[in-house]
Amino acid sequence: MANDLRTVVSELHNALSRNQFEAISELLSRGKRALLLQNALIPTPSTPAELIALAREVLELGALASIRQTDAPTFTRYYQQLQPFYDLERDSTNNAGAAAFQNSQRSKITGLYLLLLLSMGDSTSFHTVLEGLVEEASLKGKSVEDDPFIKYPVELERNLMEGSYDKVWRETNSERVPSEEFALFSNVLVGTIRSEIADCSEKAYPSLPISNAKNLLFLESEGAVIEFAQQRGWVLRDGRIYFPVEPESAARSEKDILVASGTIIENAIGYARELETIV
């Protein structure tokens, strides 16, 4: 049975490297059935170290495959299934136990989960997970930011709390993104931020030049701005975007609009001070 699992793990690695998701799905089913027959889907201290390592690796590869498919619910389930394995890893104090976790991707999977929570706006769960990591690291005389997989979402969250959306955008487009999987969730996070900025812009401005909206929304081209505007139902005319006017906002004076605009830009979009006057 262990030989079968080793074969499944090897084939999973190959299929994942080629993004062969149909093959991955079949291999994961085979692997989980084999683990179920050996009562290894939930490990115990008495579970053989080799079986723990194989079981953990099957679930980790499943988690990474779900991210490649941007399937957040499935990734979350794999993350939860992995926690008993990671609990054993954290509590392992002898060499025999530690051998089962030599190739663990715990920090990568955990960092990805933190990034997912950020993209969902779940600050409470983010800090709950992070507090446990901080406590564990401190007991070892380390910092969570010593680990690049954990440091990345922590820095993004810090920038979000400061309203430094420009820093978030630069980080998600830099070479410091830890892996391909992080880049996928980073794109989701930037999309969430872009929607929030769009919501604020609708309330703050009667209209914006398309050229300035490109910078404001972190889009690559004016063509991308036009596509985004059409998706939100904005009116495009004479090189400007005109936002829908709600009855209650129509009565606001120009002074009110300018004050609201200044507040949003200063507090939420720090980089906008570098732009031209856009109202």
Rank of each mutant, 00 (worst) to 15 (best):
M1R: 15
N3A: 07
H13D: 06
A15V: 01
L16M: 12
R18I: 00
N19R: 11
A23M: 06
L27G: 00
S29R: 13
R30M: 14
A34K: 14
L35D: 06
L36E: 15
L37N: 15
L37Y: 03
Q38A: 15
Q38P: 00
N39Y: 03
I42P: 05
P43V: 02
S46G: 09
S46H: 09
I52P: 00
L59K: 02
L64H: 03
A65Y: 00
R68Q: 12
Q69P: 11
D71H: 08
P73K: 04
P73S: 11
Y78T: 04
Y79W: 14
Q80G: 03
Q81N: 13
Q83V: 10
Q83C: 01
F85L: 08
F85S: 00
D87R: 13
E89Y: 10
R90D: 14
S92A: 15
N94L: 04
N103H: 15
S104R: 00
Q105S: 08
S107T: 13
K108T: 14
T110C: 02
L112G: 07
L115E: 10
L118G: 04
T124F: 14
S125G: 00
T128R: 14
E131D: 14
V134M: 09
K140M: 11
V144T: 10
E145R: 15
F149D: 09
K151E: 14
Y152I: 01
V154Q: 03
E155A: 10
L156F: 03
N159W: 05
G163L: 05
G163F: 07
S164V: 00
Y165T: 14
K167Y: 02
K167A: 15
W169K: 01
R170N: 11
E171T: 00
T172R: 04
R176T: 15
L184K: 10
L184E: 04
F185T: 08
F185M: 13
S186E: 04
V188M: 06
V188N: 05
V190F: 00
R194G: 01
R194I: 07
D199L: 14
K203F: 09
K203L: 13
A204W: 03
A204K: 04
P206E: 08
S207C: 05
P209Y: 02
S211F: 09
S211G: 04
S211T: 06
S211A: 13
K214W: 03
N215Y: 15
N215H: 14
L217C: 02
L217P: 00
F218S: 04
L219I: 04
S221V: 10
A224R: 13
F228T: 08
A229Y: 04
A229E: 00
Q231S: 13
G233S: 09
G233D: 07
L236M: 05
L236E: 01
G239A: 10
F243H: 07
E248P: 07
E248Y: 10
S249I: 11
A250Q: 08
R252P: 01
A260W: 12
S261T: 06
S261Y: 01
G262A: 11
G270R: 11
Y271C: 12
A272S: 15
R273G: 11
L275T: 03
I278M: 12
